[in-house]
């Protein structure tokens, strides 16, 4: 089996009357895309993997004033392979002025023996809105996780909003009460946009307070966004906790009520 390289692309354009049209929908197996609604695309996995050595890239370009929702049909199961190099999944997304992106694929499961890198580069225009969920499951049921590293970079008009790496399957972090504790999966949702901007009080820097629940928190960022982070014993509990955090973050933006509506989804 040889390593696979694939580049898929979704691009929207404004179709007049405030509507969104899918300008490009380019599948590249195993990254197969299906339009499932006027502004919605599902990622349909064709073939197993990714496996070690595979390099998959998904580009998402949401044109100014348009709106897009990206989901996936099922979980991504990352498997070991013969190659020495890790499997790599890169998602580059640009969200234009006044545009909205909702990105919520099913979880990535790091099967035992895999070595995976997930790279997300999310570049937001000043008044773009995004909902971006990421879930990582530490191995299939009852197995030790493979190794994974997920890097997430989000910028707003070039300014850093959130930069994070998650390490999974490394000795230093596994089972550490400082990192994941006894959780078997980790997830986060970034909800960002002008509605989540911190209050512009010029001379007093007072941090906004987080909303906190059992195993989740909705963390107001220094920039215009909230990150919901959650830990869970399994994917079901993780999703439930993320949903609570997302609700807390979306229904009560930490500032004045939003001028624009929350991302549809």
């Amino acid at each position: 089996m040889t390593a696979v390289t694939a580049r898929a692309l979704i691009r929207t354009e404004a179709a007049g009357g405030g509507r969104t049209r899918l300008e490009t929908l380019r599948s590249d197996p195993p990254l197969t895309l299906r339009q499932t609604g006027p502004r919605r695309v599902h990622l349909v996995s064709t073939g197993a993997g990714p496996l070690r050595g595979d390099h998959l890239e998904l580009g998402v370009d949401v044109a100014p004033g348009t709106s897009l929702e990206v989901r996936s049909v099922g979980a991504t199961l990352v498997l070991p392979g013969l190659a020495d190099t890790p499997s790599v999944m890169v998602v580059r997304a640009r969200v234009g002025a006044g545009a909205t992106l909702h990105f919520s694929p099913e979880p990535t499961v790091l099967a035992a023996g895999c070595v995976h890198r997930l790279v997300v580069r999310l570049s937001l225009a000043e008044d773009a809105t995004v909902f971006w969920r990421e879930e990582i499951v530490f191995g299939r049921h009852g197995e030790r996780p493979g190794r994974g590293r997920a890097r997430f970079d989000a910028t707003v008009a070039g300014r850093p909003l959130l930069r994070q790496d998650l390490l999974v399957g490394e000795e230093a972090v596994d089972g550490s009460p400082a990192v994941y504790g006894d959780a078997r999966c980790v997830g986060s949702t970034l909800i960002a946009g002008p509605a989540w901007a911190p209050p512009a009080v010029p001379d007093v820097k007072r941090e906004r307070r987080a909303a906190l629940g059992d195993g989740w928190a909705a963390l107001p960022l220094a920039g215009p966004g909230v990150q919901v982070c959650a830990l869970g014993a399994d994917a079901v509990q993780l999703r439930e906790r993320l949903r609570r955090g997302e609700e807390a973050a979306a229904t009560s933006p930490p500032t004045t009520p939003p001028a624009t509506s929350a991302p549809d989804g």
Partner: peptide, 21 residues
């Protein structure tokens, strides 16, 4: 600087917020 490590520890985040309560 954009490329500097950003290793996050969700449990530390939850602990830090819980501490305030």
């Amino acid at each position: 600087w954009h490329a500097l490590p950003g290793h996050s520890a969700p449990a530390l985040d939850l602990l830090a917020e819980g501490h305030l309560t």
